[in-house]
Computed example of a mutant assay.
Amino acid sequence: MNETTTAPVQEAARRLLRAAADKVPCTPVRDLIGADDLSAAYAVQQHITWERILGGAVVVGRKIGLTSPAVQRQLGVDQPDFGVLFQDMSYLGGDTIPVGTVLQPRVEAEIAFALAADLDEGPLDADQVRGAIAYAVPALEVCGSRIRGWDISLVDTVADNASCGAFVLGPRRRTLDEFTPRDVVMSMTVDGTEVSSGDGGACLGDPLNAVVWLARQARELGDPLRSGQVVLSGALGPMHPVVAGNKVTARISPLGAVTVTFGAQHTA
């Protein structure tokens, strides 16, 4: 945190950090930073990110949220948001996630892109972004809110790291020469019952559009996307809540499937 960080931003960050540490959801932070101050919300997110890095956490990528037009209309916004992915949020298909790891967990299916080049210079247009992507895999994002009852506005979710909790990467890698992201078809099941479906068009019309947006926003905020990072490009269908014992599988054709199980909560 630098000396220009305002007292409300500091207090909002402390509230969210305390909720994460105590695993007890807190009240929204819009009362501290204002209901419409998106810059303040990202300042809170950045402060929390630096606190985590100082504590030893390692950044491995970014997530894009609010890519669905329906969700944008629900919150009264006209743009996505983004958050930071840390190494300790990362799981592989077939893993078990202790349900207490993420507060108030909800799962959504999306495409994850792995970057092979920095996105810090140039026009950051579709051609450049496409050329920077090494491969894609099917992914699950476990969204989680540190805010009680998911009582969130846009500034609340942005401040709370875009409501990111964990992510799961599938085993099958495909290059962009092998498939077209906007043409994928997704079905997500919980314990064998379909709870969400969609396609590539649900993510800003094309998941690659979302990555272009993110690359430009990240550079504008002074922290551009880097080679080796993972980008979760945004939900292909509605999210769904999960509890201990649930098994979630997303099939994203033609990328393949990714599965994760939610295990019993850790106890002290």
Rank of each mutant, 00 (worst) to 15 (best):
Q79M: 13
L54H: 08
S145C: 09
Q79G: 12
R216Q: 14
A20D: 15
E51Y: 02
G76K: 07
A139Y: 04
V242P: 01
S197M: 05
V44S: 04
L154D: 07
A134P: 00
L255V: 12
V142T: 14
P138M: 09
N2C: 09
I97G: 04
L176H: 10
M188R: 04
L140W: 03
S233F: 09
T180K: 11
A41I: 02
G200E: 11
G144T: 10
V212K: 04
H47D: 12
F262D: 06
R251L: 14
G149W: 07
A215E: 01
D125Y: 05
A7W: 04
P105E: 04
N161L: 06
V230S: 05
F179K: 07
P171Q: 14
D160Y: 03
W50V: 11
E110L: 08
S253N: 13
W50Q: 15
R52T: 00
D183P: 09
P105Y: 02
F167A: 11
A244Y: 01
M239G: 12
L232W: 02
V9H: 06
L75Y: 14
A257E: 15
V84Y: 13
R182F: 02
V168N: 06
R18F: 13
P123L: 06
A13F: 02
Y91S: 01
I64Y: 08
Q45R: 13
S197E: 07
Q72T: 00
D191G: 10
Y135L: 08
